[in-house]
Amino acid sequence: MRYLIPLLLLLCVGLQYRLWWGESSLPDFWALQASTSKQEALNERLERRNTRLEAEVKDLKKGMAAIEERARSELGMIRQGETYYLLLDQNASTSSPDNKSADNE
């Protein structure tokens, strides 16, 4: 009985050491858990991006409407026979390059 209590205390300290500082300890587990959650968030974001890209590829393969929409929005193209109107903001017209050069003189 005399040696049993110190032996149990020594065993408890040994187990606590492994739990807190040893291989596969709690801090390692927490770090791995945080890394896993970051990777899952990244995977979800990439999955949404892939879904959008897949839909865009299908749309581009399917018809000319997507190609025309892209040409209009990204390249500013217009159809033959259409009239293009450029609407200026009132604030933008007061700060035109002509007015700026007049201010500098």
Rank of each mutant, 00 (worst) to 15 (best):
S96T: 03
E69P: 04
S96C: 07
R79M: 11
L75K: 14
N91R: 02
L86S: 11
S95K: 13
Y84G: 12
S73A: 09
R79E: 15
D89W: 03
R79G: 08
Y85F: 04
E82L: 06
I67C: 06
Y85S: 12
Q90K: 15
I78F: 05
E68F: 03
E68K: 05
I67Y: 03
L75H: 12
L87E: 15
E69F: 04
E82I: 06
Q80H: 09
L87W: 11
T94R: 05
E68V: 00
M77P: 02
E74K: 01
L87M: 14
D89C: 06
R79P: 05
N91I: 05
Y85H: 14
Y85A: 15
A92H: 05
R79I: 09
A71N: 02
T83C: 01
M77F: 10
M77R: 10
I67V: 13
G76P: 05
L75Y: 12
L87F: 12
L86R: 12
L86N: 12
L87R: 14
T83E: 09
Q90Y: 12
M77G: 09
I78Y: 07
M77N: 10
M77W: 05
G81K: 01
L87D: 14
A71D: 02
R72N: 05
S73L: 06
E82M: 02
T83V: 08
T83D: 07
E82F: 04
A71S: 09
G76D: 07
T83G: 06
D89N: 12
E82K: 02
L87T: 15
S96Q: 06
G81Q: 06
L75P: 00
L87C: 13
I78S: 13
I67D: 02
E74P: 00
Y85K: 15
A92C: 04
N91P: 00
N91W: 03
M77Q: 04
L75T: 10
G76Y: 00
S93A: 11
E69L: 10
R72P: 00
R72Q: 01
S73E: 07
L86M: 09
E68Q: 07
E69Y: 09
A71L: 01
E68S: 01
S73H: 07
S95M: 11
G76M: 05
E74L: 02
I67L: 09
Q90T: 15
A92W: 03
E74Q: 00
E68D: 01
R72A: 02
S73N: 08
E68M: 05
Y84I: 07
Y84W: 12
S93L: 10
S93N: 08
N91V: 00
R72I: 01
E68A: 03
E69S: 15
G81A: 03
S95Q: 09
N91G: 11
L87G: 12
G76W: 02
R70W: 06
R72L: 07
R70I: 13
G76K: 03
G76V: 00
D89L: 03
R70V: 11
I78P: 02
S73D: 09
L88Y: 07
E68C: 01
E74H: 07
Y85E: 13
R70M: 14
T83P: 00
R79L: 13
Y84V: 13
S96D: 08
Y85V: 13
G81S: 01
E69V: 10
L86Q: 13
Q80D: 09
E69C: 02
S73W: 03
